Amino acid sequence: MKQFRTAVVLAVAGLCSGLVLADTGKLLLTGGVSSIDGAAGGGLTPWAVIGSNATAGEIGASVHASRATSQDYGLNTAGLTVGLYDRVELSFSRQDFDASVATGLNALGFSVQAGQHVNMDVVGIKVKVAGDAVLDSDSLMPQIAVGVEQKSVSAGSIAPVFTFLGTKSSGTDYYVSATKLFLGSSVLVNGTLRYTNANQNGLLGFGSKAPGKNEASWVPEVSVAYLLSKNWAIGTEYRAKPNNLEALGRSAGLADGLAEDDWKDLFVAWAPNKHTSVTLAYLDLGRILPAITANRKQSGYYLSAQLAF
């Protein structure tokens, strides 16, 4: 998978060096925004749409930066997406997770450094296999795409925690997405099935030693958006999580201290023109390592800006 990650990054860089940027562009907001993993969609989950403003016969690109914060954690993300002929999408995202609260694990004998951050690189490819969200908006046919996301984590002084949990520092997610745009009703609905063994999207590694769950499983993700106008959209997302580590935590006497909850958000997106969009969301991320956060649920905000061509 390291070769796959390198190949996609080189392909993105090569395409950008000689990019023929899209000139016509899609309808505003119908191409989604950039998710935290880099793929076009909502903030938390990919859609079947292909990122950038490129339509058939064009190559486009987008860049994004985002910030998410909750009671105990923070996440900065930046990424690049290239859309090829409205058929193939290549993406790269770098996530910087503020895991300072993990020093609470030192009471269990670890040596997590103060101010520790966890970094994760996500390289993705998405291919549209059927339908067209806009052209098929007057029928029941959705746009369907399949995708792969290769994730690699650098955990710093938290790496011994990964070893204790039996989690790996890299993993691969596979997904299939179906996006249906009801243009006459100004409603977009997306459903995604993800095959993953990522803990907290991969920021806490992949899989678990027994009695935790190590094998990947299928989990659903859903988005619904309403286009208030050509420039504004509101919506909500739900992303189920595999919860691989809870059984291991219970066996170690931590009760539900390693439980992983599903993610949800409410968002508003604004596209003042075809090149720029801004997304603001309220996040409900449930519990993240509740053993060191007094079982607090993590809620907060997400702010993302995207520039697309």
Rank of each mutant, 00 (worst) to 15 (best):
D132Y: 05
V12Q: 07
L188C: 09
T103C: 07
G166C: 12
F4C: 04
Q71W: 00
I158S: 06
N295P: 00
S35W: 03
A107H: 00
L280I: 11
T279C: 09
V146Q: 07
L75G: 11
T30I: 08
Y174D: 06
L15G: 14
T179R: 03
I50D: 02
T24A: 11
D98E: 13
L183N: 13
L140I: 14
L28C: 00
Y175G: 05
L258I: 10
V148D: 05
T6C: 07
V219Y: 04
A225K: 04
G253Y: 12
E89L: 07
S91V: 09
L204E: 02
I292N: 00
T293N: 02
V224M: 05
L44E: 00
T167K: 09
S229K: 07
A305G: 15
N273H: 11
S170C: 08
A240K: 01
G249C: 06
T196H: 09
G42V: 05
T236E: 10
G124L: 05
K230P: 06
D265F: 03
K297R: 12
L283V: 07
D265Q: 12
A216S: 15
A271L: 01
L193K: 04
D262C: 02
R296W: 01
T45C: 12
G79Y: 02
S154D: 15
N190W: 01
V9W: 10
T81D: 04
V49I: 09
S152T: 15
G38I: 01
Q113S: 13
G31D: 01
G38D: 01
